[in-house]
Design a protein around this nucleic acid. Sequence first.
DNA 1: GCAACTTTCGTAAACGTTTACAAAACGGCC
DNA 2: GGCCGTTTTGTAAACGTTTACGAAAGTTGC
Lengths: 344, 344
Amino acid sequence: MNIRRLADHLNISIGTVSRALNNRPGVHPETLEKVLKAAAELGYVANQSGRSLRRGATNTIGFVIETGHPAHQSGDQFFYVVLDAMNLYLAEQRYDLVILPCHSADDPVEFLSRVIARGIVDALVMTATRRIDHRIAQLAKSKLPFMTLGRSETPGNYSWIDLDFEGVALRSVQEAVKLGHRRIAVGLPDNDVALGYHYKAGYLKGLAEAGIAVDESLIIRVPTSEMGGFSLGKQVAGMSDQPTALLLCSEVTAAGVYAAFGEMGVEAGRDISIVAFRENPLMRFLNPAPACFRIDLDALGTRLGETVLDLLSKDEQRNQRRGEIIPVEFMPGKSLQPPRGLQR
Amino acid sequence: MNIRRLADHLNISIGTVSRALNNRPGVHPETLEKVLKAAAELGYVANQSGRSLRRGATNTIGFVIETGHPAHQSGDQFFYVVLDAMNLYLAEQRYDLVILPCHSADDPVEFLSRVIARGIVDALVMTATRRIDHRIAQLAKSKLPFMTLGRSETPGNYSWIDLDFEGVALRSVQEAVKLGHRRIAVGLPDNDVALGYHYKAGYLKGLAEAGIAVDESLIIRVPTSEMGGFSLGKQVAGMSDQPTALLLCSEVTAAGVYAAFGEMGVEAGRDISIVAFRENPLMRFLNPAPACFRIDLDALGTRLGETVLDLLSKDEQRNQRRGEIIPVEFMPGKSLQPPRGLQR
DNA sequence: GCAACTTTCGTAAACGTTTACAAAACGGCC
DNA sequence: GGCCGTTTTGTAAACGTTTACGAAAGTTGC
């Protein structure tokens, strides 16, 4: 069933049918109704390829993820929930969402070139944004609208949404200091994802506020994975001059840290306090329950959808490029206690 | 950059260029090379809309998921890992994967009608298959190739892949019986997803093998969610004639059961043994570690990709419709112990 | 009844491919 | 060179839309 058959069936020209179906002005209310009715009856829906070809737009949003990344295997449902929420919003707006997996072993620039050239999406959501991100310069040149999940320092005309990693780190330090901690370690990613820089910035800011000198040996870089967390836990627990608190910028590492602590006979909270990053439904089964931050992933997903469609809006107001920081909520947990000497 | 510009640049007709790029026979090796080289240099990639329109195929696979479902919020990364693996395979074969979310509140048949009519995908992977599934009859009529993740009893010409729920339940019963359990409860989904029937079938088979009479009060239906598991745990722990073992057909309920047990002062393994379903990276933080089954989700995802592309093959051998059951591996855990009276 | 509008409709071109078909070039042979 | 068969190339139609443009029909005012 195509538009020609529908038009013939109605004894009407395809032009009029198309206008009717697309709510274009200048079609008689009576014919409009007839067309809509017939389309519903015959189950006509415009073919997407034909429409895309003519309009030069596909009504599809691409979501670029890095695959082959260990965190994906580590029970991190972050992306899944976010994708789901975003997808729901996009579907309401009659947009499709296509996942574009760029394997970490592949060249991301070449990958994007193909995506751009094929014209399969109207806009892109980029993830795993780096502090210096070549993909941004490439996309900016390509004219394909895009946004990033996570800020980058690479300039360009794009919107971004980021979690408040700096705020999280700052608050984590503040909460620890409030309880008497002065020797506070931090686990950072070992690659150059942007979040690591923001988290570190918040951490340094917190130390400065509290008048604590920076000890480089307490800034530890590990892969963002359970194994990375395990290694981090071992390192920290094995230090001769143990820190009294450990801040984590990812929840996947938390599980590993707990496992390492368990093996070393170190108890989170009692021996070394922990502030994890994102509250996670399964986190409650870590014992003692980690202090962490609640993030509304549903809202994040929806905001991603809204923001990416804003890019495509004709409305000068809406399609303005903008950055947005998603707030988080601190959740106290048993893993954050006063340091050993101050415990009663 | 379109094919015409590329052809002009080479002083060649677009027909030849197209043939060259698509490896069609009858193009001079020399020109073939020239075309390929120029395409690479100028970054030409065929526009997907134009190609789809002409070919009547989109090189896109649709993955239909049910959203608005509580399990999605419950830290169940099952789909995510599967999607990732499938997507990786499809990308290798130059296929895109688009997620098609059907909200549980919407009419799935109407939803599919639109998907079919728009011609946005070459084939579909259906999930959350029901025992009697109207979508299957609809798709069978539509000529759109599709497969299901999970068997259905609705007949139709389609391939399916399923986890061996029956085998899991049977093995679970066998393992429990081996330790001396006779009073074995089971938690089943409260809707008509097909897996519930298979799981129950295996459970009944196991009881029959062991010569245990079926006690209907031990067959408990709850929503497949943490809350459902919580409710299940409460019910089981609160029974006057407690079962000594509880089998779970989903790992999301496991967390809830543990939480309920914790509140009721019941210890898994010691008081009531538990056999969960799928091994899950975060499951190790449940204490005591649950007995469960290991499933290679990566392999499952890849098989899904292979199977769905088989549907589109010209090869009579390959495009045969077929069913496949993914085997699982039993993982003993501390949550499965001999029943109270037999413990030493 | 007619001019001057306005509303509604039909026609045809265009989007970027692929491919059937015809035309051209080529090679071998007499 | 002329003929034939094969290889290679060019041309044009087709896929299903949307939309600019002009034509037709309808409305108003005189």
